[in-house]
Amino acid sequence: MALIDVQDLIKRFDGKEVLKGVTMSLSEGQSKVVMGASGCGKSTLLKCLNLLVSPTSGRIIFKGEDITRPDMDIHRLRQDIGFVFQHFALYTHLTVEENITLGLRKIKKMKTAAAREKAAFELERVGMIEHRNKYPAHLSGGQKQRAAIVRALAMDPAVLFLDEPTSALDPQMSREVVTVINKLYLDNITMLCVTHDPFLAKYISDSIVFMHEGVVVAEDVAERLFYEHEDPRVRQFYLSVIDHR
């Protein structure tokens, strides 16, 4: 059974239809990438799935539950979905370690010592342990994003969402972060990642969902989607994205 099952999802922002009936699914242990031109609704899709944005209509089944029903506990849902943002969104007044332990202590109600131990374990995995007492302002972009990934993973979510995790990084730092996400992929972490980067997409996905103007128009593995897809909108997109690299 799918972990997330989206059927005919529609989102309108004051009359403007941004998602026009999205249907897709994600199974446990699966990793999918969402690609498509800027403004086609990728971020809106992710935010509908954790109810940061409330869907206009359609069904979203998460762990067998319809999360669009009115009495849904949105806080509990969000605890189950890790979210990594393009611009890191670390808490500026807290150190790396405190960024990670805050949710563990205040949401998961872990004791401080246990939370710190958990943070140390996760930081070790992404090579960030020596930075744990630094503030976000004193980290490089790549380090910030790795810290943000750890903050999300430490909560043991059922799925990790990443919204253009490397777009704000220069190539060197981007490589650092791709390496980390690739490791998660190899560990079978369930992921849904929006990106414009074909390199990242290829190394972290089982399949790629292609969106165009608010609908999913194709889904396939990287090679077929990038080089030999029959849909002209898909070919058009990857011609411009891949040739310029």
């Binding site: 954790n50 940061l52 806080h75 509990r76 849902l77 969000r78 605890q79 979905i81 979210f83 943002f85 969104a89 670390l90 808490y91 949710g103 205040k106 949401i107 943000a148 903050r151 999300a152 909560m155």
Partner: peptide
């Protein structure tokens, strides 16, 4: 937004 996404 990140804090909301975390479930706070």
């Amino acid at each position: 937004e990140a804090a909301r996404a975390q479930g706070f």
